[in-house]
Design a protein around this nucleic acid. Structure first.
Lengths: 116, 116
DNA sequence: GTATATAGTGTCTTATTTGATACTATTGGA
DNA sequence: TCCAATAGTATCAAATAAGACACTATATAC
């Protein structure tokens, strides 16, 4: 989530967790990267409504927090791949649990949407 | 979470879920209410750092979204109890999964904190 | 008479997040 | 020669979230 609540101060682990994976886009990004290694523009296409700048920001924060890793290929045109770190992968059960709840409880209340 | 992304527009169920339980305090509030029925000032004491006004706001939103219910007792001094609705209770596995991850992964990175 | 507890509300200000838009470098292809 | 694709930056503006602080009513307790 946004800025840390009490910088340098001890707080509840759940709050700490939300500092990492909260925010409007992070968990959705994490889903996409968890599914498979993704490239920058691939993520952009998967998430219209997310601007380039926000995508960059969020990826940087996830990287900074050790959840995903960024691999740059020295090619032209540029190629950058994002994948889950070992630490990031530990989030899988949490993300799946959220996804499952969303599909059971929210989907029926909505129209249609490709989650895959 | 904050404002809905695409009002009146269909989006991913996970995004829809985050519209309900995202935000800086909501999931933590939900934990507390899930544990047991809580009174307003009880929640305030459990969450220093959360102002009275924010607490009111968040509770109102959770109530509006059908996750918790609010019961007012006609007493003086006032007494208001917050509890999970049936719908809210379906979130339990998600919340527990998050909590467990937080305790395993985040706690060791922090000092100490009573989560109970 | 005064203080205390409860569950708020109102107003104002600040911080943070989000978004729009334009711009960069480089190489391959038509 | 000009366009396209990639993975970004930079700058500015707007929307949202969060927080500070003061203030309310009422009954009971001291």
């Amino acid at each position: 989530m946004r800025k840390q609540r009490h910088p340098g101060y001890t707080h509840c682990p759940v709050e700490a967790a939300l500092d990492l994976i909260g925010g409007k886009w992070k968990s959705i990004l994490l889903f996409r990267v968890l599914e498979e290694t993704r490239r920058f523009n691939e993520l952009r296409r998967l998430m219209p409504g997310l601007t380039q700048r926000m995508l960059t920001n969020q990826l940087r924060e996830l990287e900074r927090d050790g959840l995903i890793s960024r691999k740059v290929y020295a090619e032209v045109p540029p190629k950058v791949e994002y994948s889950m770190t070992e630490f990031g992968k530990t989030l899988e059960p949490v993300l799946l649990s959220l996804k499952q709840w969303a599909e059971v409880q929210m989907l029926p209340r909505m129209a249609s949407c490709e989650t895959t």
